[in-house]
Design a protein around this nucleic acid. Sequence first.
DNA 1: CGGCATCTTGAGTTGGGTCAATGGTCGTGG
DNA 2: CCACGACCATTGACCCAACTCAAGATGCCG
Lengths: 220, 220
Amino acid sequence: MPVGASPDLLKKLDELVYVRRRLKSGTILYHTGSHFHALFAVKSGFVKTENLHDDGRVQISGFYMAGEIFGFDGIATDEHMCTSVALEDSEICIIPLDRIEHIGHELEQLQHHFYKLMSREIVRDHTIMMLLGSMHGEERLAAFMLNLSQRFQLRGYSPYNLVLRMKREEIGSYLGMKVETVSRIFSKFQEQGLLEVHQKNIRILNIEGLRKLIGQHPSK
Amino acid sequence: MPVGASPDLLKKLDELVYVRRRLKSGTILYHTGSHFHALFAVKSGFVKTENLHDDGRVQISGFYMAGEIFGFDGIATDEHMCTSVALEDSEICIIPLDRIEHIGHELEQLQHHFYKLMSREIVRDHTIMMLLGSMHGEERLAAFMLNLSQRFQLRGYSPYNLVLRMKREEIGSYLGMKVETVSRIFSKFQEQGLLEVHQKNIRILNIEGLRKLIGQHPSK
DNA sequence: CGGCATCTTGAGTTGGGTCAATGGTCGTGG
DNA sequence: CCACGACCATTGACCCAACTCAAGATGCCG
């Protein structure tokens, strides 16, 4: 699920960075319809991207943490097709696409790296589609926690003590369920000794238990 | 939702095509884990891509018709992350990625075209996520029919008389619901005079009605 | 300390799943 | 040309996971 970048690539990215920018929590970086001019790399903090439907429904399509890149949605039509919002005070790097394409022209490997990044985003999306299309609530939340845990570890944080940056409602939107359901499942996981939940602080007590949960009800 | 290519691009693609290949209905073109070596353009016919979970669950992640390109899932790790299957006798073109990258090196516009194609796939996936995460069965099927209609039109077929190439079960897998539910909703749409359903032949009688259906139950 | 947002929990409802039976359609072989 | 069998689609009856509505609980910030 994570869309990350190797340290190697990150070094090269430094040459691409146009500006760094600080975002207050809640800041909208771009929204649906705004002109695409660059990709964004999360330097620190947490960002969500969400798709808004006319009738007011919202679907969160991604959460991005330090080291991850987002904004690929804007390349197709030169207009962003979703909205990105900082979930906490964050710092992001702005990477104009034409610069990638230009430097990629000289540095064939960089071009390939960017194809890989986009492909990874596609694979990640397919994972979410699998989750939304064929898993039960408990499996979805378990998969989500495991994914976060893995990404935290990748970024040098503990894979067991997570601090969620999003609220329950946002988790629900991402996983295709209502706040109440998210809350109930958290409680259930706690009763089962899988997690310890204190607000946004989650401690994973039984990671194997979470793993085994997925694929338990191969019904749906 | 569609991932297509402009006629302009298609012309350039001709230079990239390595081989054409005929596929019998049911042929697997690549499967999860197989080595990635090329992208594929549908010349004629119909192809699906599906993600398989260990426990046997299947999630169809895309349907591709003439003029559309698939296989981007393999770029991330040089291994395909899903399985592609021909839904009817089809003809496809094989486009090695290194050739794209090479020619793209000379022809900057081509490189940009490919970024656009991948971005379009990402945007399409987000649409499906929205559908799976926040729509009811009826809305999903309505959105699916409208999307197919639009793609048929784009390829020069009637947008009203559709011949489905996939079975109900596959529609269900794509839309995150069971065969029976797909069938029930088709029947309901027919009763309401929105569609005329004869097996895989669907006639759209009231396209506006279908559109209005989406966003009707902004609940979920 | 008060006010507001977020989170949790309970009770009742329902959309869509499960299971089971029936009905069509098509391809094959007698 | 018709009969058989395999596969696919439809329909009905029943059930359950997740939704809705409503009430509290908890935590955060001025």
